Amino acid sequence: MRITCLHTADSNIAVFENTARALGLDQHQFRHVSRPDLLAAAEKAGGLTAEILQQTADVLLALSENTDRVLLTCSTLGPAATLASKSTTVPVLRVDQALAEQAMKTAGNVVALCAVETTLEPTRQLFAQVERHPQARLKTRLVAGAWEKFKQGDLAGYLQAIAVAADAEYRQGAACVVLAQASMTGAAQLTQTGKPLTSPECGLRAALI
């Protein structure tokens, strides 16, 4: 199967390649396209505007022409996958859809950690839309200062800050901690008190169904 991934951070290419290998998906062909400008525009605008939504959907549609699946890996731009899906028969998926579905099957407190402020609202909306366990309770939280570390190139500091935040949520009684952005994935290996869910693993599994 040919899977085309649209990223908004160049470093996420390695994240998805590594996850694919860990899941034993070497038989599939992955193509990666990175458009950091789309996330930068959303950050500058304070969120996902109608113009950025349409621009992202147009990119996704163009990518759908020579592939079997398109996977949007940016949580801030997630709704663009739904918009693009209306104009193509090729499945256009948002990587955090499966993440939300798996997380909300949990009975108890589900905490979705975000690093970028513009990701908070799309994450809340997505998790509210999926089928949930009657006792699932969602909280979204911004990991303060983490994204600045990422933008400064301090990936180790970025992931450590997220791991610390995840451990704190587990200690406070979270039944499930979710790393809402793909760039946060490496933090799951650094936690001490629990194993958070990550979007690349959940999303890639779902894309191949």
Rank of each mutant, 00 (worst) to 15 (best):
E201A: 15
S75L: 03
L53M: 15
D154N: 15
P79Q: 08
V15T: 15
C74R: 02
R94L: 06
G153C: 09
L77N: 08
A146R: 02
L60K: 10
A40I: 00
Q189K: 14
A57K: 06
V95K: 00
A40Y: 00
L204E: 05
A20I: 01
V95A: 14
N18C: 01
L83P: 01
S199Q: 04
G108A: 11
E101G: 04
S87C: 04
L71N: 07
K105H: 06
P91K: 05
Q135E: 15
L71G: 09
S85D: 01
A182R: 08
D10W: 07
E201P: 00
T185A: 15
L142F: 10
A103C: 12
A45H: 06
S64F: 11
L63K: 07
A128W: 01
L61P: 11
L208V: 13
F30V: 03
T89F: 03
D58G: 04
L155Q: 13
C176T: 12
A174R: 11
R124M: 03
V95S: 12
L138E: 05
G203F: 00
Q97P: 00
G46T: 09
L208E: 01
A207T: 08
M104R: 04
G194D: 09
G194A: 11
L72E: 02
S75G: 09
S87L: 11
L48G: 09
G78A: 15
A98Q: 11
Q181V: 05
L197P: 08
A9P: 00
D37Y: 04
A62S: 14
S183P: 07
D154P: 11
Q97I: 01
Q181C: 14
A40L: 09
K86G: 00
L72Y: 03
L113A: 09
V178W: 06
A42Y: 06
K139M: 08
T118V: 14
H28P: 03
G46V: 10
G157Y: 07
Q152F: 00
A144W: 00
T67F: 05
E43G: 13
A42D: 03
P36N: 12
C5D: 00
F150E: 00
A156D: 15
V143L: 05
N18V: 01
A62D: 15
L61Y: 11
L126Q: 13
T119S: 15
T49C: 08
A188S: 15
L53K: 12
K139E: 13
R205N: 11
L6C: 11
A188N: 02
A57M: 07
V143D: 03
T140Q: 02
T119N: 07
V95T: 10
A166Q: 02
A62C: 02
S199M: 04
L83I: 12
T118G: 09
V130L: 10
T88D: 09
T8M: 10
A136I: 06
T119E: 03
L190G: 01
A98V: 11
A20Y: 00
R124V: 11
V92Q: 03
L138A: 11
Q125V: 14
V59F: 06
V92F: 04
V130F: 10
P200D: 06
G24Y: 04
E51D: 14
A9R: 05
Y158E: 03
A22G: 09
A22I: 01
I3D: 02
P196N: 02
A187Q: 04
D37G: 15
Q152L: 12
G186T: 05
Q54H: 09
G173N: 07
E17N: 11
A103M: 09
C5W: 00
E148S: 13
I209F: 05
L48K: 05
R132E: 02
A103N: 09
